[in-house]
Amino acid sequence: MTRLTLPALSLLVFLSAVIAVTLGPADITPGEVWSVILHHFGLLPESPVSRLRDAIVWELRLPRVFTALGVGAGLALSGTVMQALTRNPLADPYLLGLSSGAALGAVSFALIGLTLLMPVGAFFGSLGALALALLIARLLGGATPSRAILAGICISALASALTSLIIFWYATGDSYREILSWLMGSLSGSLWADAGLAALALILCSPIILLAGRPLDAFAFGDTAAAALGIDVPRLRWTLLGATALLTGIMVAIGGAIGFVGLVVPHAVRLALGSRHRILLPHAMLVGALFMLWTDTAARTLFEPRELPVGIITAVIGAPIFLIILLRYRRVT
């Protein structure tokens, strides 16, 4: 069955992207989308599409669609890896505080004038938050799922407050919209540069993660069991947690702290296809891309012309699912 699901999902991602570009305040047809793309690749010298409509497709919708696909794939992949490595079904970049840490890192770099290096700041922020979460959980007497989440809540609260403070400090005029877009996450105003950055992060991190699919299976019964199967546990753990922090950091630098994607998507895929990571990881990536694309499309079209931060939609979907997972796994927490 799994032999066909990957090509089928890829096709679904492709079709969804084409449809999503046509949706919005200005009605665009799929044909016009193709004309614009071909025109910009120089394959169609005389575009039949007006310059305004061309700009809507090429400057607004296409970059946003690609950014959503990349951010969703990255967050879902991060969540899958964190759940396997920490043997914590509740692990998720948002719930463990990585996303808030990344947002804090990004705005801190902006504050000291390093606006171009915001993704680097986000990486250090997410890495710091991850280290802090694991440290606090250990101080509480071992990194059990519930302790890790409690540590994450603490880090999230502090990092979010500091992020808000920094934005409030340096922003002139109305800073609330910007604060909200960092804390809830929003892909509003995504540029080709954002889509490119998301793609770059995926190109850097996903091969490392996807190649570790089989070794990740060995963690099913814990570190000792993995080591007894010949896995270099510390090396694999730090490599993958590093890749996860980088992936999360960059995705947050692009879209803010969009929550629950890394929790909902891996659990849904696991439910359908089981826990073998060779299968789980690539599927989670594609489903994450789809999930983010459609939630973001909803975010920009539901209340048009006003935009909803996409994190509100992912939280409305994700929080009840978090509760269901919590109830199912209450014996481990």
């Binding site: 299976d217 099913a220 019964f221 000792t224 007894a228 199967l229 010949g230 896995i231 696991r270 089981g274």
Partner: peptide
């Protein structure tokens, strides 16, 4: 790991694995 195997006291998992999946871990 190709020569020595370990069975622990009671190792549990939260992953959705079939019995066959678990036994297949031994081939890693």
């Amino acid at each position: 790991a190709r020569m020595v195997a370990l069975v622990e006291q009671s190792a549990s998992t939260e992953e959705r694995l079939s019995v066959r999946d678990v036994v297949a871990l031994g081939r890693i």
